[in-house]
Nucleic acid binder design. Structure first.
Length: 577
RNA sequence: GCGCCCGUAGCUCAACCGGAUAGAGCAUCGGCCUUCUAAGCCGAGGGUUGCAGGUUCAAGUCCUGCCGGGCGUACCA
């Protein structure tokens, strides 16, 4: 029994179905909306009463009688127009929470049927350095992966980096034009953003260079060994940049998770052939297209999914189709999640539809676009530098650590420099990640240094502080007999804390169901708040045993839960701040 | 034009898929440190949930129509 809400839902639904003589009646149990309504409430009685044309309060009363005694429940209450308010039993809470003393693993529910889930996230374009546009997908994707894995799914990460296409011709030609010396080339690539801009400028102003660049693309696609070698060098350098970012961000994606666009090159023609065989291809204006009825363009004209350009070139839709097939067939995906910017939603609707139409994956394989909004500056416009350039991710992360260092030094100047630096890094990076994860991913998100690095409100610093504070208390306890003691509820603050702790499973299931890490961050923020209230109301070290021991256990379980929750979001904790 | 997303306190965001009096934080104002980290806690003010209808015992949530915003919409990704 790991999920209280679900347990109650089953119990009360069964009783309701039996009393109402309507199978599959739903009790619709949720956490009580106000504390005076108990711990949980059942909302489903009224709609069933409506169907039965009976009095909802009387029906609720009958359901309560049918439920009888239960160790989990202290008492039920019929309230309002026909709610059942549910009050959990203190002794059950005490017993259940004691089971968490050695490990909180039982708060992480395991799925009954583990699935193979492919998650496509981060996926930067290697032509440029990672910029702020890659931040959300990388962070959100990483957290979802952690949660899905924790629940027992087999998760396969796929970093679908862009390593192919016309701009690489330009970059290769530019690199070649500078020097053929390998070391000098490496130096030139140290700042990819600058390099890209210089190449682009030359491309736009120098016709001869532009011609060379186009020739490079052709040679690259034809497999010219010399050009390929330069391309590989470029990719290697660019991946090195990405790796540095992932390390700073503490992202779990590995080099082995890389499956670059070029990986699919030799499968693209096969995709076209397959579509052809299934009579899905129409040639329109020289381009090979798939037209599906559900997609209409301007003036109601059919909207194509172009899979091969009129010049014979393939597009990202073709690559994505090849990737879907690979994931479904060779990786055995039962679900494929694309953690990608919301602006690409039409693209994904189209290729998902084409993939299913063409039978590239089984009918049962679920393809889902986990869309997220655009990152905005404080002015509500897309987040850019003052001069209008995109902001490099590495610069943003360095600034986060720098700002955090100033704050940490201000709050705790006595700590030695190296320790402050370490704290600043964890706080700074944590702040950037948490600010994003704590908001609903679907809406646009306003990036604001001051609010994310604030130590007040729903922020990483607040949560990390709460954790460090608990650890500080635990370090001060010398009594070793704690583990054998019981948890005893003597105050409402203790009770509220226990209930909150036991609600972690419900939250994790909700994160996995809706792909919303923000549900977890909200939970952690509330947990920290409830702990702080407990901390204010209930002295721990100054209490006498066995209450002292009980409170120490609660503090320890809370710390472990915060740590685990933050870990699932991708945040590291600090023992000291 | 059509499609998708969005509109909640001055600002940033919630609201567990239709439930009881719409909640937090910031900012503003007022309390609490000889007491486990005050990076904290407690309290106050602040709302016609863009507008108008509809469905329902019950609507921020579902349906319709407006208004306002963002994004997308045939050979970029």
């Amino acid at each position: 029994m790991s999920n209280i809400r679900e347990t109650l839902e089953v119990k009360i639904s069964t009783a309701l179905s039996s009393v109402a003589e309507l199978p599959d009646s739903k009790a619709n149990v949720i956490i009580a909306s106000r504390s005076e309504f108990g711990d949980y409430q059942a909302n489903g009685i009224m709609s069933v009463a409506k169907q039965l044309k009976s009095n909802p309060r009387e029906l609720a009363q009958q359901v309560v009688e049918q439920l009888g005694h239960d160790p989990l429940i202290d008492h039920y209450e019929v309230a309002g127009p026909g709610f059942i308010n549910i009050h959990l039993s203190n002794s059950w809470l005490e017993q259940r929470s004691k089971e968490l003393q050695n490990s909180i693993q039982s708060l992480i529910p395991q799925v009954a049927e583990p699935q193979t889930i492919v998650v496509d996230y981060s996926s930067p374009n290697l032509a440029k350095e990672m910029h702020v546009g890659h931040l959300r997908g990388t962070i959100i994707g990483d957290s979802l992966v952690r949660v899905l894995e924790a629940l027992g799914h087999k998760v396969i990460r796929q970093n679908h980096v862009g390593d192919w296409g016309t701009q690489f011709g330009m970059l290769i030609a530019y690199l070649q034009s500078l020097s053929t010396d390998h070391d000098i080339q490496s130096t030139q690539l140290a700042d990819l953003e600058v390099f890209y801009r210089a190449a682009k400028a030359r491309f736009d102003t120098d016709p001869d260079f532009a011609a060379t660049a186009r020739a490079c693309v052709v040679k690259l696609q034809a497999g010219d060994t010399q050009i390929l070698a330069i391309w590989e060098q470029f990719i290697e350098e660019s991946l090195h940049h990405c790796g540095a970012i992932y390390e700073k961000l503490n992202i779990k994606i590995q080099p082995s998770d890389l499956r670059a666009e070029s990986f699919y090159n030799n499968r693209l023609q096969g995709i076209i052939d397959d579509l052809n065989d299934k009579n899905l291809v129409t040639v329109s204006d020289g381009a090979k297209c798939v037209f599906l009825d559900q997609f209409k363009g301007k003036d109601g004209n059919p909207l194509p999914v172009i899979v091969q350009k009129s010049d014979g070139g393939f597009l990202y839709a073709t690559t994505d189709l090849a990737a879907i097939q690979f994931r479904g067939v060779e990786l055995g995906a039962e679900r494929v999640l694309y953690v990608v910017d919301a602006r690409q939603s039409l693209h994904f609707q189209q290729i998902f539809a084409v993939a299913h139409e063409a039978g590239f994956v089984k009918e049962t394989c679920k393809l889902e676009h986990i869309a997220y909004g655009t990152m905005m500056g404080k002015d509500g416009r897309p987040f850019k530098t003052r001069s209008g350039d995109t902001i490099k991710l590495v610069d943003l992360l360095d600034e986060a650590s720098r700002r955090a260092f100033v704050l940490v030094s201000d709050k705790n100047p006595d700590l030695d420099n190296a320790l402050r630096q370490k704290i600043a890094e964890t706080v700074g990076i944590g702040a950037v990640k948490y600010a994003d994860l704590s908001k609903n991913r679907t809406s646009d998100y306003i990036f604001d240094w001051d609010s994310m690095l604030s130590f007040e409100g729903n922020t990483a610093p607040y949560l990390l502080y709460a954790y460090a504070r608990i650890k500080s208390i635990l370090r001060k306890q010398e009594d070793t007999s704690v583990s054998s003691s019981n948890i005893i509820i003597t105050d409402n603050a203790e009770r509220a804390l226990i209930i909150k702790l036991l609600q972690l499973p419900e939250v994790l299931q909700s994160v996995a169901k809706d792909y919303l890490p923000s549900h977890l961050s909200t939970y952690l923020y509330e947990l920290a708040g409830i702990f702080m209230r407990f901390y204010e109301a209930c002295p721990i070290l100054k209490a006498e045993p066995p209450i002292k021991h009980s409170r120490l256990l609660l503090a320890e379980i809370t710390a472990n839960t915060l740590k685990e929750g933050l870990h699932l979001l991708g945040l590291e904790t600090l023992e000291q701040m």
